[in-house]
């Protein structure tokens, strides 16, 4: 199947200027290649700082990639500007992690939901209002909420509003950047269920970012595990969970707290070791319990464990 969105060897380097004017470079993404088919949902898992959110920001073009290309429906969107960019944004929308800071406190629900439609143009007030009501119903909220302000809602309701807002422009792709990390587990379940049913109804394509593998499983068909700007393992979510091949994926799985699962004692490493950038080898080298000399000298290539299950590890 032709992929809807394709990412080829995407790189992003941030230049950080310090107080005295000298710059240091931080490589947030070190060559990521992914593809997502229409109607599919791809989960991206990894710890803070692995480049998950940078990836989302590049896809929605809040930032420009340093190298590589992002291809949507055959069109390279990695360096497009202004008008074309505005058009693109109606096709790709994003839901952020913190529902308390991503909704304007000075706008009513109606204003929040209709603003993207105004930007898109050509619609009467009545049409926009009807659409807003329809969207609210889609995320399980009553139309009487239209005149209320964000502070009147709970975290879960706000996150549902964010989802409704993202859907106003009828996008093809929805980027979900840790949409449930700030929510209670009981509310998280509500939001995850809404997301799955919306996907079925509207044939949406999801890119779901999270640090919890158990959550990703509920949303995505395929999962990619990222570490320090690199994809370590990618494959069907079921395979990743049931037979993880990369040592990092295994470690992430062990850390997820599940009722009835005995506590697995973590390594007490505080993360302050100088595991500076590894140029040639595997970026997981310093934390990997199975690391050997080859891992430091040579970047592991993707090995196919099964047809669609790829692992970037010499031992995979």
């Amino acid at each position: 199947m032709e992929p809807l969105l394709e990412i080829r060897d995407l790189k992003k380097t941030f230049k950080i200027k310090n107080f005295f004017g000298s710059t240091t470079e931080v490589q947030a993404l070190k060559g990521i290649s992914l593809s997502i088919a229409k109607g599919e949902s791809l989960g991206i898992v990894g710890e803070s700082g692995c480049g998950k959110s940078t990836l989302a920001n590049l896809i929605i073009r809040l930032d420009e990639p340093t190298e590589g290309s992002i291809i949507l429906d055959g069109q390279d969107i990695s360096h497009i500007k202004e008008k074309a960019l505005r058009k693109l944004r109606s096709r790709i929308q994003i839901v952020f992690q913190d529902p308390y800071s991503s909704l304007s406190p000075r706008m009513t629900v109606e204003e929040i939901l209709t603003e993207p439609m105004c930007v898109e143009g050509v619609k009467t007030t009545k049409q926009m209002r009807d659409k807003a009501v329809e969207l609210l119903e889609l995320v399980g909220m009553r139309s009487s909420n239209l005149s209320r302000y964000p502070h009147e809602f709970s975290g879960g309701q706000r996150q549902r509003l964010s989802i409704a807002r993202a859907l106003t422009t009828e996008p093809d792709i929805l980027l979900l950047d840790e949409p449930t990390s700030a929510l209670d587990v009981s509310v998280q379940a509500q939001v995850l269920n809404i997301l799955t049913s919306l996907q079925k109804q509207m044939n949406l394509t999801y890119l779901f970012i999270s640090h919890n593998l158990a959550v990703v499983k509920y949303i995505s068909n395929r999962t990619a595990v990222m570490y320090r700007g690199k994809v370590m393992e990618i494959g069907p979510s079921k395979n990743i969970l049931m037979s993880p091949a990369h040592p990092y994926t295994k470690k992430l799985l062990e850390a997820v707290p599940i009722v009835g699962k005995p506590f697995h004692q973590p390594d007490t490493e505080d993360g302050s070791v100088n595991d500076g950038d590894i140029v040639d080898g595997c970026s997981y080298y310093y934390r990997c319990p199975f690391a050997e000399k080859r891992c430091l000298e040579q970047q592991p290539e993707f090995l196919a464990k099964e047809a669609s299950h790829l692992v970037a590890c010499w031992k995979g």
Partner: peptide, 19 residues
């Protein structure tokens, strides 16, 4: 029931039960 788990449920229903 609302805590996500790895293993699929016995009845094959994969929606999380929210409160």
């Amino acid at each position: 029931a609302s805590v996500p788990s790895f293993t699929p449920r016995e009845d094959g229903n994969d929606t999380l039960s929210a409160i």
